[in-house]
Design a protein around this nucleic acid. Structure first.
Lengths: 137, 137
DNA sequence: CTTGACTCCGTACCATGGTACGGACTTTAG
DNA sequence: CTAAAGTCCGTACCATGGTACGGAGTCAAG
């Protein structure tokens, strides 16, 4: 693996936008290489690896703040990292529960629509209205 | 129900922020009452109802754009509304599926952490790293 | 040398759904 | 009348994760 690379090469290698890398730099997620007297900044392999870590963690649903935490812990605090992952797992579970509730409500409303003999009034709209007064005014 | 009300009364009645009502006006979701020559704008009952519709639809997961569509349809186009609801239902189902996948991955990683005899290396971190090289550099 | 591609830098913008604020004006209650 | 609360209005900001852009400078290839 090449140890140094310009920003657009890194972006291409990791299938990222140059602007995104700059954003991560600004946020302090990765180090910005020093500007050499001659030529462009060169990104070391460890920064490339770090970005790969960030990308994988994002895929797991971690926010950039959370990822920053993880990166700060290194891999010698397994209990702390486990804790962060458990919190994320609980958050995901909550979201699933919320979405399942929504799904149930929408399912029921759609069934009402499908079985509605009078297509000039809509059970979904009526369920959304206060006291089902209609909005045709 | 009082037919006219000032903006802060509407906000209080509907448990909303004044600024939120103004935002809905700016977005064209609700009509902004004409400014009378004397006194403050007065919000008619039908605007209050409309905001209640918006709130309930948001609770069902519809975005403001989608809600604008629903409001535009009235309740005489049950098939169109059903279509919009079905799209939303599919979106919610997709999100649930994605989240379930994430949950499975995180579950497995957390189990690995819990059963990890060597707390000085973390399976979660190692799974996020390219080739599990470690980030202690 | 020239030109095109790349980098840098600082600033602004985008999506969505808000939220905040300052200054000017109006209303209300004492 | 006075003071406090409310309204209006236009502009800017917030969260999160980006994305875009213009102008200036650098590098590389022909």
């Amino acid at each position: 693996m090449e140890r140094y690379s310009t920003i657009s090469n890194v972006a291409k290698l990791l299938n990222l936008n140059v602007e995104t890398i700059r954003y991560y730099e600004r946020r302090g997620l990765i180090d910005q290489p020093r500007k050499p007297l001659q030529g462009y900044r060169e990104y070391p392999g460890r920064t490339i690896q770090r970005i790969q870590f960030i990308k994988r963690a994002k895929e797991l649903g971690f926010t950039l703040d959370e990822i920053e935490n993880l990166l700060g812990l290194g891999d010698t605090h397994c209990e702390d990292i486990q804790g962060i992952a458990e919190i994320k797992l609980n958050t995901i579970q909550s979201k699933i529960t919320d979405l399942e509730s929504l799904k149930t409500v929408l399912d029921n409303l759609i069934i009402q629509c499908r079985t509605n003999p009078d297509r000039t009034h809509c059970p979904i709209v009526e369920s959304l209205l206060p006291e089902s007064k209609g909005i045709s005014d």
